[in-house]
Structures are given as C-alpha cells and as structure tokens.
Design a binder for these strands. Structure first.
Lengths: 215, 215
DNA sequence: CTGTTGTCTGACCATACGGTCAGGAAATGA
DNA sequence: TCATTTCCTGACCGTATGGTCAGACAACAG
C-alpha cells in the first residue's frame, strides 16, 4: 500500500499527530524536571503538570518513570554524538578541535537541561546507560584518540595525551551547562549575554589551542 | 572552669567521643549515599544502614534529612576553599595555577563523593547553598581574578579572561571526580592507577600552563 | 451507521518515605 | 547510691509517590 503510506506521511492523521505532539511535550517537560530535581527528586506529577497533561496520560505513553528517563537520556546522547561530526572532516587540530569546542559550547547553551541530566546519570554510576558508555562512547573515544594521535605524529600539535585532552574538552564545554547556575550567580545573577558567550568560547579555544601547541 | 575545659579537651569523656564518632559516621555515610543517589534519591534508611545505625538514631543527631545534607555540603565547601590557599602565596601563574591544579586534582581523587554532592547541588539550582555562592564564592572568585589580572598586567602570562580561566580550572579538575565513573568505564572499568593520575595531572597542567602562555 | 482501534482520565491502591515518640539503657556528677 | 542528663531505638504515623484500571470518548475503516 504505497498510497496509504504516502498519505500517512503527508497527512499523518490526527492520531499520529497527537501521539507525536504529546510524546514531545512529555519529553521536554521530563528533561526539565529531571535536570532540576534529579531522577529521585523528579515526580511524575510535576512532569505532568509542566506538560499540561494528567498524570495517567504520561503512563499511557511511557509505561514507567524509568522508561521516560531512559528516553530523555538517549535523546541527549544522540544530540551529543551528532555534534561531534565536525571533528571528523577536519584537516588538523585547529579546525577539528576548534569546531568541536564551538559545537559543544553551543549545545551547553541550547540544551543545558539535557547536559545536566546526562551529568547526573553518569555521576550516579550510569545505572541506565552503562551499556552506551561501554560500546558507543568507548568506540567514539578510541576513534578520536586515533585522529589526535595522527595529528601529533605529523607534528601538527604538541604531544599531549589525547585521552586527557578529550576529557578537558568535555569538562570545559559541559561546565557551562552543568554549572550554569553557579556561573549565572557569579554573573550578578543573570544569564550570559551573546557577547559573554562569545568571550567564553574564545577563551576556551584560545587556551586549549595554544595549550596543545596549535594556536 | 579552665580545668574542666582542659580535661574535656584531653579526655573528652565517653559521651563526647560517642557523639563525635557517630556524627562522623553518619556524615561519611551520607556523603556517599547523597553522591550516589542525589538528594531526592537518597533515603535516611540507606544512610543509616551504611553507617550501621538505626534510622531513628540519625534523627537524634540531625533533625532532618535537609539538615544532614546541608552539613555534608558545607564540609565539602570548606575542603574545597581551603585547598585554594596555595593559589595565594605564589610568585606567578606557573607556581600558583600549577599548585592549584595539583591540589584540586588531589581533592578529586580523595573526595570524589564530596565533589559529586557539590556538583549535584549546584546543578539543581543550589537550593541549599545559594547564599554561599553569593557571598563566599563570589568574594573568593573576585580575589583570584584580581591576582590573575596582575599576572597578565605584568606580562607573566597571556591576556586570557581570568574568569573563564577559573571556570576551566574548576571544570577540568572536578571532571575527574564528577565523571569518575565514565572515566573508569573508558579505562577498562578500573580506577586510574597512580601513574595514570600523574599523567592526568601533568596533561592538565601542560595544556593549561602552555595555554596561558606561562608554560 | 457500525464495529474497532486508539486516546484519555478520575479514582484508586500498595508501598515507601521522612519524621515522631515513649520509654529503656548507659554515662555522669554529687 | 541516687538523680540527672545524654544516648539509643522499635514501633508507629501521615503523606506522597509510582503505578493501575475500568470505562468514557474520539478517530478511523468498511
């Protein structure tokens, strides 16, 4: 039934619409509540209120609190991995790492809640996404380490331990999301302006790139 | 009664001993449980079990869960601030920032749970220690920024935004505690060895110090 | 129109949690 | 020894939470 399929895609029908709309609503609300209160502190009632739906409706789309949480964490992980693409098609460390820092800083700015949920999950021993750490993340990390090593071998940057360099990149960029509240407090209580975000990016890039002898 | 006071200090008496011993027991257990489960996920029963005491006994020493939590966070904050002393009596950025990195890395290694509790607290909007952020931390930060600025003005380091440099120092060092589980997973599941910790410290110091033009 | 499937929800339940309390045990001081 | 203070704890309570369910309602297919 190609015709039906096409119609379904172009005119999805009310049911499909409702499902996608509500799932999205719930996931966005859950991301915020999980980020603000942690898994244990978050309640389905809070998420339901924020989503503007009855609590029972949440359990219609997501069987358990854990299932909803897992979905939220997976979404974040995907965004986070996708943003690392710019790392690959780079000629050298200045392009590659510079673009990676830009991308990750942008994620910290646009998806601070997601970053917090991820941080929380890892801090608590990654009970839900341990398998991701052991497979996808490990593979990705090994690949990037190899790339950095070729840059070192070809003299494009100083011989810095690639693994610890990666940790520094993650730490410095995600800090602006995970510790955003602290940063705002030290910024007279307000969020960083466009100019301040630009300065943050440039500062991080300046120190790191000069630090690896590629600035 | 100076005699009584002195005797109390030298021979504290069983009651004083018991109190100090149990309070310490509870605080250490609480630090671990709060770090592993977050404030919301932690239960007084879990803390009690880990401390080897009945739950009701916890409420004898700490009236509420929040009071116990507040105490744990305060302890960490103190350790964290004290370790920053080495920053002050330094001639220049290489000594000062190098020693600061060493000290903070050592804290990440020795008090990972404390660091996690602190991170969790800040990530959730610092509901308990907001006043500390606005007073002590802000003052400390302003002071260090001034010091770094003098180093820049006297040409001892490159003109890097001091505030963002501080954030980088916090982020990179605390990452080894807060994301310790992720790091261990990427390290074949085991904790870093002495050699690996040394390498981590050296990598961070090398990149940062060279990055600020002081390496 | 009619049957079927998917969507929604108020009311309900079992459990687990933070916190209380009465009263017993142990240490201390006189 | 006796009185007083501190320490301890099993049993208990009110509440809030995650999750369930029967049944109402809306969309779709034939």
């Amino acid at each position: 039934m190609p015709r039906t399929a096409q119609i379904t895609r172009l005119k999805p029908g009310k049911r499909t619409d409702i499902r996608r709309e509500n799932e999205s609503l719930i996931r966005r609300a859950a991301e915020k509540v999980f980020a603000e209160a942690g898994f244990g502190g978050a309640t389905m009632q809070l998420i339901a209120d924020l989503a503007g739906l009855p609590k029972a409706n949440l359990h219609y789309y997501f069987p358990t609190k854990e299932a909803l949480y897992r979905r939220v964490v997976q979404d974040i992980f995907e965004i986070w991995l996708n943003a690392a693409a710019c790392f690959d098609n780079a000629k050298g460390p200045v392009d590659g790492i510079g673009a990676y820092i830009d991308a990750k800083m942008e994620i910290s700015r646009r998806h601070p809640d997601g970053s917090k949920v991820w941080a929380s999950e890892v801090m608590h021993g990654a009970p839900v996404i341990q398998d991701y750490l052991e497979t996808t993340l490990r593979d990705w990390t090994d690949g990037r380490i190899a790339v950095i090593q070729t840059w070192i071998d070809s003299g494009k940057m100083a011989p810095v331990n690639p693994r610890h360099l990666l940790y520094m990149l993650w730490a410095t960029t995600q800090h602006y999301a995970d510790f955003g509240h602290q940063i705002e407090t030290l910024n007279d209580g307000g969020p960083l302006t466009d100019q301040q975000w630009r300065e943050a990016k440039e500062s991080v890039k300046a120190v790191i790139l000069r630090g690896i002898g590629a600035g």
